[in-house]
């Protein structure tokens, strides 16, 4: 798994986002065990305490759960992770549209750019 950490933003939030996205995309399946805190910390090159905090936050959101002594698992329902992903997609799209509007483009022009972008 490739980790890209942006040092300008809180790291815990980035780890939450990444794990949640992997679950929403089905890379991690419902009920499956995910990489441990230490493995994730080593892979991402970040502090284990930060990863621990992220996992606890994801648990609070109902996206993963912990089993004492055996690690962290994807919840049986992955719809929360999917909802998180959906709202991120909407957020990013809105951001993009705002930026394009600020550059003086109307909706039709934006659509045209996206279509031409395809190949």
């Amino acid at each position: 798994m490739h980790w890209e950490i942006d040092k300008n933003k809180p790291i815990a939030a980035q780890i939450c986002e990444k794990v949640s996205t992997l679950i929403a995309l089905g890379e991690y399946r419902a009920g499956e065990k995910i990489a441990s805190v230490r493995e994730t910390a080593l892979a991402a090159g970040v502090n284990p305490n930060t990863v621990q905090r992220s996992f606890e936050e994801l648990e609070r959101q109902g996206i993963i759960y912990s089993v004492r002594g055996s690690g962290w698992f994807v919840a049986n329902q992955t719809d929360i992770a999917k909802e998180v992903l959906d709202s991120r997609i909407i957020e990013k799209t809105a951001e993009y549209l705002e930026d394009m509007k600020a550059l003086g483009l109307g909706f039709a022009a934006i659509k045209k750019i996206i279509e031409e972008w395809e190949e």
Binding site: K7, N8, K9, P10, I11, A12, A13, T50
Partner: peptide
């Protein structure tokens, strides 16, 4: 460190 990033919007 995450507080520093959050409050200032920049890396440490």
């Amino acid at each position: 460190v995450d507080e520093v990033r959050e409050e200032n919007g920049v890396s440490v």
